[in-house]
């Protein structure tokens, strides 16, 4: 149990210290999208699928946003820079 605690603490410390703040922003954005999607999914299970198209619109918009954010994070991660040589630094 202690090892897990130590590992977690170290993970968090390293994340806070080493991750560029732009990536932290993307992470925060993705967590927000993830929560929105989960809440909708729980809601549809409880309330039923009646306006099914509205549910699909709401849920798929979160999925799409999540995928775009994930792509942005991969491309702007300095560790992956070698794979995206043509990408401009603004990204």
């Amino acid at each position: 149990m202690d090892e897990v605690k130590v590992a977690t603490t170290k993970l968090v410390q390293n994340y806070v210290r080493d991750t560029p703040s732009s990536l932290k922003l993307i992470d925060a954005y993705m967590v927000y999208i993830l929560l929105t999607g989960i809440i909708q999914f729980v809601y549809v299970v409880i309330a039923g699928t009646f306006p099914n198209n509205a549910f699909l619109a709401g849920f798929i918009s979160t999925v799409a946003s999540f995928i775009l954010a994930a792509n942005l994070r991969i491309q702007s991660n300095p560790k992956n820079a070698s794979q995206f040589k043509t990408t401009s630094p603004e990204r």
Partner: peptide
């Protein structure tokens, strides 16, 4: 009214994208 959470979600995705 039952679909309001979905509308809110879609709108917040749009606003969230702009803010981000």
């Amino acid at each position: 009214s039952q679909a309001k959470p979905y509308y809110t979600s879609a709108a917040s995705m749009a606003v969230g994208f702009l803010v981000f």
